[in-house]
Each structure stands twice: as structure tokens, then as C-alpha cells.
Nucleic acid binder design. Structure first.
Length: 278
DNA sequence: ATCCTATCCTGGCTGC
DNA sequence: TGCAGCCAGGATAGGA
């Protein structure tokens, strides 16, 4: 399930293929993929054609294809959100199933967007900041300091897990890395944000960053076969997961079987001993 | 602010 | 074996 580390992996590995290339033609095979201009395939394609990809970056779980005219004048961006099952790859899978968008580029390169469950969305906009305006801070950015996190969390009272999944509170975490971060911080996902002391908050802050950094270093998690890298390879972080998908297996810290519970209607994995609900 | 439900989707699994 | 029904999961919307 693509979260921040998976999207970061996609961006890093796509960039050398896409940077500086011109968009020659675009095909859309499922109109509802196009979020902006909403479901207007012809306008979407006409807008993109002729523009150049000047950079490939990330914000939260969005891939950002920065666009320019004549490789010089900034124009705007094409945003791609993979949601559950989206894949951005540089070669076709051999089967046309689930192919939603195709970008034909200069230099005989082609970018394919596959999306089995049709949740993924694509935007083309002159003002990407407007689409991204509601997102919370980037957890690995220099601006996301411990004092910033302390202040934000002190203003909340809800359960930790739904809070960390809230993209307006902090951007980029999903089900896997929230569970992993809470385990590493030894905090129960149902703990209320206003019951944490300063040391709890510090551990959570460190755990979020460490969890994301390690996952990026391992090129993301391919847990269910959904996430693949642009070259078709899988991630490696699934081998390093401590709790996610580890139900009934012994906790690496204390040996107690990992439990799968439900928190905020979401499947959740914990060690009941290491993460007590005080 | 917080919490719950519904919606969007399909492949895979469960149970009869 | 076959098939209906359920579930996961990111994000958002609407109601309590």
C-alpha cells in the first residue's frame, strides 16, 4: 500500500527516466482517473501535450511531475495519487488489464499508470499548491521539528492511530507505518493524544522518522504484491516489519504473540505487552 | 473536535 | 466444486 516511503521510492526511481522529457501524447483508459480537469479526458490530454517534465518530486503520498514550457518556464504540475493499488512503471506488464493512463514521452520513453482498484487519481493544474493545501507537515522535512510536533499533538485529544492517519495532522503515513511507528514508540494505538507526556511524544516523533527513513532505505514495503517499483522490482521493507501483518507471530522485543485488533475501523497490529493501554 | 458510516473498487478469501 | 458474501485499505463527505 503506497505510503510516503513507497511514493518516495517511485519518485526517486522515475526521476532519471522522466526529467527533461517532453510529453508527446497521453491516453486515458478510465475517465474517472482524471480528477482535474474532472473526467475531461480530451482537455487533460490537450493540456499536457507539448509540456516538458522539469522535475519529479513528492508531497505526502502525491507524485508531482513538475511541468514547464520549453524546459524553461514553469507551468504547473501533473499530480498522481496511487491510493491503494496504483502503479507507475516504465514498462507495460504485458497485459492491458488495469491500465488507466499512458504518457508517451520524447526519447521513446513511456510512463504507465496501472490501477486495479480504481481509487488512484491524476490532476493537471497550474496551481498544485491549491490541491495540496490541506496537507499537514512532511515528517522528514527540516521544518518538522520536535517542538512543532509537540505543539500540534498538544492541540488534539483523539486516539493516536486515527490522528496519525489524518493527512491534515501529519502527511504521508498510512496503515503500515502508523502501526510500525506506534510499536517502536511503545504506544497503544488507542491512547488519547492528551494523555502523552513529553517523553512519550519524543519517542513517537523519533519512531515516525526512524520508521520512514528505514523504509525508504529498503525501497518501500511490498506486502500484498500491490506496490512495485517503476522497474518492476519489489521493495524490501516487508522483511523488516515488526507488527504489520505479523499477527500471531512473536514480538521481536518480548516474544508475546502480535495481536490484530480494530481501531477506528482499521485493521491494527500491536504487541499487547510492549504497547499497553494505560 | 471527534467519531461513525458510507462510498469508491476488485481480487482473494471464507463458508455453506 | 461453485458461488455468494465479506474484507482490505486511502481518502473524503456527511451526520451525530
Amino acid at each position: 500500500l503506497p505510503e510516503l516511503p513507497e511514493v518516495e521510492t517511485v519518485v526517486r526511481e522515475l526521476a532519471p527516466h522522466l526529467q527533461g522529457r517532453r510529453i508527446l501524447d497521453v491516453e486515458v483508459d478510465w475517465a474517472r482517473t482524471i480528477q482535474q480537469p474532472q473526467e475531461d479526458i480530451d482537455l487533460f490530454c490537450a493540456t499536457l501535450c507539448g509540456l516538458d517534465i522539469s522535475g519529479v518530486t513528492r508531497r505526502a503520498k502525491y507524485v508531482i511531475l513538475e511541468l514547464a514550457q520549453d524546459n524553461a518556464t514553469p507551468w504547473g504540475a501533473c499530480l498522481i495519487h496511487l491510493r491503494m493499488s496504483g502503479r507507475l512503471v516504465m514498462q507495460p506488464t504485458g497485459r492491458p488489464e488495469h491500465l488507466r493512463v499512458t504518457w508517451h514521452l520524447s526519447g521513446r520513453k513511456t510512463l504507465y499508470f496501472y490501477n486495479m482498484r480504481k481509487f488512484g487519481r491524476v490532476w493537471v493544474t497550474r496551481h498544485p499548491g491549491q490541491v495540496l493545501s490541506e496537507l499537514g507537515p512532511e515528517p522528514l522535512s527540516a521544518a518538522f521539528t520536535l517542538p512543532v510536533f509537540e505543539k500540534r499533538i498538544s492541540q488534539r485529544r483523539g486516539m493516536l492511530k486515527p490522528l496519525l492517519l489524518n493527512q491534515q495532522f501529519i502527511a504521508g503515513l498510512g496503515n503500515i507505518y502508523v502501526d510500525e511507528s506506534l510499536f517502536q514508540a511503545r504506544l497503544h494505538p488507542k491512547r488519547k493524544a492528551d494523555t502523552l507526556d513529553k517523553e512519550d511524544v519524543r519517542r513517537l516523533y523519533e519512531a515516525i522518522q526512524a520508521t520512514l527513513r528505514q523504509a525508504i532505505a529498503k525501497h518501500g514495503t511490498t506486502f500484498d504484491g500491490l506496490f512495485v517499483r517503476p522497474d518492476g522490482e519489489t521493495g524490501r521493507q516487508q522483511e523488516g516489519l515488526a507488527v504489520y501483518g505479523q499477527a500471531d507471530l512473536p514480538c521481536a522485543r518480548c516474544g508475546t504473540p502480535i495481536e490484530r485488533i480494530t481501531v477506528g475501523q482499521r485493521g491494527t497490529h500491536i504487541c499487547p505487552v510492549c504497547q499497553p493501554l494505560v
